[in-house]
Design a binder for these strands. Structure first.
Lengths: 219, 219
DNA sequence: TGATAATTTGACCGGTTGGTAAAACATTAC
DNA sequence: GTAATGTTTTACCAACCGGTCAAATTATCA
């Protein structure tokens, strides 16, 4: 029998681990730039340097690849928000949250686009994830922000929309990259635009939220 | 001969106009929620209440429908930015720009998602539009903002990233609607979230940009 | 080395999809 | 009414696509 077909009980051979990684990387490329429906197994297989049946030996279906990718991505996507610390200084926390999210857009644009794609389509694969773990986490952090407001460390504002606006502005640089590049033109072609964005966004939020820093302004 | 096939010379029959409109509306539904590749002609045809060959009598290809939709959408999408007035009061202009964009997210979410989809895919159909007309318009408005800054009406900041951040935050409510709803839960289920968003965003930007209003604070 | 299990390949299949051909049907113009 | 033009339908096709199968090949290990 040749049943195992990747991860039946646990990770088996070194070759399995290696190939699966190559497939996932190729799939991330293809899915993030073509969407689930727009991606073909042949494309992924070719990009991973193997034949379609060979790829299907490691992942039984296209869906299986996609789901694996989504799972991994969701975890890292939430990492920065998890790091948001109630004990920390509001200004420092918000600044570093913005910076972290911006770094993710710079370093993992494919993951960001994969996520954007899924959400655009109505999140058919992760609706439970959104209404469950994500909502809980956001609720928790919103409470932190609300406490800061009550303590007078922050101007009054809706913490949910605050979080949304940080997500939106930072992910924009990954998801709408083509547009950003087209508009900026040759000016600041390289990674410089991420530094500019960080500067602008930190200023916008720190000032806009009327944050009273414990240790005064950094700048 | 039955050659005309929709708009050979000019708009001909009333029936043509009517059917084309129905097709475009159905196509907007289908394209915006499934992407170009994910949409099928059959789906569009069914949603428009006609047979596939009948639909193809009005638009020769799937591409043709998509292009028509994109063209229309781009025009209205840029409308709010065009309305941005150099002569106006900075605070009023930025407030109304935010409000207008937010209204577009509320009233035309399908168009917003169609656009987001196209950009996510690398804007294959509208790259010229982005690097040409869009860039020119943004350059022009960035100059306006820069002038306001020079005149001391606005704190120093990068006008391009300012525009990006308004785009991002406002379109977020259309493009990431599922996520927004999931996180907000039953709380503020209806259209109320747009009012909350408007309140938050206007506050964030007016304060964050350190705008010195001619007529003092509105609130 | 040989047996056993893991991996890879080529050939194939059924369903879907974008699009066509041609004839039937409806509408309008005279 | 009838001829010309505009519209709709039925039947169809070729390419693509997700996935299977069985045989061939390679790696592992006693």
């Amino acid at each position: 029998m040749t049943v195992p077909r990747a991860a039946k009980t646990q990770r088996r051979t070194r070759i399995q681990e290696e190939k699966e990684e190559r497939i996932l990387d190729a799939a991330l490329d293809v899915f993030s730039s073509n969407g689930f429906r727009g991606a073909t197994i042949d494309q992924i297989a070719e990009s991973a340097g193997m034949s379609k049946p060979n790829l299907l030996y490691y992942f039984r279906t296209k869906e299986a690849i996609y789901r694996t990718l989504l799972e991994r991505m969701l975890f890292t996507w939430l990492e920065p928000l998890r790091a948001f610390d109630a004990e920390g200084d509001p200004e420092a926390e918000i600044r570093s949250y913005i910076r972290r999210k911006l770094e993710m857009s710079r370093d993992f644009p494919r993951e960001s686009r994969l996520f954007a794609n899924e959400i655009l389509r109505g999140a058919p694969h992760i609706e439970d994830e959104l209404a469950g773990p994500l909502k809980d986490l956001v609720d928790e952090k919103a409470e932190v922000i609300r406490a800061w407001i009550k303590a007078g460390k922050l101007g009054r504002c809706d913490p949910y929309h605050l979080i949304f606006s940080i997500w939106a502005t930072t992910q924009h640089y990954a998801d709408f990259d083509v547009q950003v590049r087209a508009v900026l033109g040759e000016r600041r072609a390289g990674e410089g635009r991420f530094d500019d964005a960080a500067r602008f966004l930190e200023l916008l939020f720190v000032r806009g939220l009327d944050i009273k820093s414990a240790k005064g302004s950094f700048g």
